[in-house]
Design a protein around this nucleic acid. Sequence first.
DNA 1: CTGAAAGCGCTTACAG
DNA 2: CTGAAAGCGCTTACAG
Lengths: 343, 343
Amino acid sequence: MQPTLRDVADKVGVSAATVSMVLRGRADGRASAETQARIRDTARELNYVSNGHAASLRTKKTPTVGFISDRIATTPHAVEIIRAASEAARTFEHTLLMVNTGELPSTELTAVRELRRDGIESVIYASMQHRRVTLPEGLPENLVIVDGFADDHAVPATVPDEAGGVVAAVHHLVDLGHRRIGFLNEDPARAIAAELRLEGYRKALEERGIAVDPDLIEESRNEPGVSDAGVAKLLERARPTAIVCFNDEMATGVYREAGRRGLSIPEDLSVVGFDNLELVATLVDPPLTTVRLPHAEMGEWAIRMLLDERYRDSATTAPGPVLQPAPLVIRSSTGPPGASMRP
Amino acid sequence: MQPTLRDVADKVGVSAATVSMVLRGRADGRASAETQARIRDTARELNYVSNGHAASLRTKKTPTVGFISDRIATTPHAVEIIRAASEAARTFEHTLLMVNTGELPSTELTAVRELRRDGIESVIYASMQHRRVTLPEGLPENLVIVDGFADDHAVPATVPDEAGGVVAAVHHLVDLGHRRIGFLNEDPARAIAAELRLEGYRKALEERGIAVDPDLIEESRNEPGVSDAGVAKLLERARPTAIVCFNDEMATGVYREAGRRGLSIPEDLSVVGFDNLELVATLVDPPLTTVRLPHAEMGEWAIRMLLDERYRDSATTAPGPVLQPAPLVIRSSTGPPGASMRP
DNA sequence: CTGAAAGCGCTTACAG
DNA sequence: CTGAAAGCGCTTACAG
């Protein structure tokens, strides 16, 4: 049997009230320093742990944050969100209760019921992909969206700065001397990120005074292991010296096509990915320069918004989701253009 | 304010006891079918959800399984364990409380306290890698280890059938006609799996009546993006027609080295990986034949052992961890030997 | 300053 | 068959 507050109180010879206050550090006037020490010692000695259910029942609070995700928790990409969020939660002495919905409305309902059953009042709704999110009914007030945003923008949300990531990539290439920089995109109809990243591409070129050549923008089907018409077209028609890709998988497609044509990377062609999937980016040859998605930053932001009042209050009131910087990770797939032609 | 049992009882005009029994399906003799229906309707109407803390406090049970992991939850490889475990848990109307310890003894202690605080009586201890595990003190009796085993084998545990996976791979290659099959291993001192997989390699060859040639066994440093002496040596000295690798990353190293030497896969060299990292295995060209780690199966096994008494009782009492089959996933990196020499 | 008491919302053994 | 009562282990407002 687990020892209870009473057990500690009896052993020390004080009331349960006193033990409770002392152990929770709210013993303002209560108990001499000496008694306090004895209480703490006895608790340790008996290996006492407060019963969370009793405490929560009484206070109607629970130190846990709900983490609802469509599929995120089961998606390797975004595991960092979880890691960062649970670490941040620990800072506030909170715990993460994870519920996966698999995007099924029925499981969304059970998820909400589970949270209500446990009296959870703070919830992170995490999407596995930057997208417009339709929240299930019945979620608590203290709510935050990660890697997505609500239809009506009524819920605080954070997303990666997709455009900014591409801007960094393009500037990097321009600074290396590139002028003909291709952009290999996902179908913008299929991903909000595609639209935003393309915007970043345009903006970055304009900022550097380079005209946008439509021939340099191509879409890829992004199917692994399959030769890709988009890449071929881009390479043949527009003859870029560098290509920025919508994601790392596409970048491997470019590697493959470059190999077929006898182009070496980065001597004949610089390549930049997006996502920084470690497994892919460090495994390809040469290792891939790519934009890192700020998963950890988003997870930490979410917890602070939920649990740190001062942080929440000081948070920007600008409309729309908070942008988290997506930094460029420079590896070896980018270099000065035409390097192989030099001696 | 959330409605309570009393609210439902008052509205229907019965006692809280009756409502409780009816809602939990334990209304043996209690209440006519009609009253039962009215109770259920009213509960729905009021959007009543039972207070889990009150219930747990009273019954001293909680429908949640603790999931402690050294780092697993934050490791893309093994996310499947979690997905499968939480789905299986849902079947038993249980929820998963995940705690990451980061392998720090101090956080292991807090983890155990958290579980005790919540009155959790069933725990999965998940390792991120097949290994001998030292369990923290104070874990509950109903305990199970995934992808590892206890020092003294006193706790039920499950691990992948590492040897069996390699046996399947080697048999597949022999059946294709290969006789000179190389094995590129991790340092056995660094991973239990390495030892077991090597055993599988030897066993499979013997089963097919092929002598084990020590020249065909090599160790790789397994550093991504780096040319690898082990691979080169294996290729030069032993001239295998096929290579089985300790993992998928190493397989990409073989791809790279093969490319340098002008060997095509699978025509000149068949390659088999291990782990089935989808991202890697489907992205390389040609897509990689590899052995799948039974993460989902292990996660499900864990939950059934913990929550399904009949399953537990019928479980084998053989010593050592339960082996989960690691099936071969055949893609395009394996084929008959010498295919490129044929017309 | 400290203890006794009430009460959070359930479940269950028991009395009627 | 059903309701009233007790009690799970806390926390807190209150009386002394």
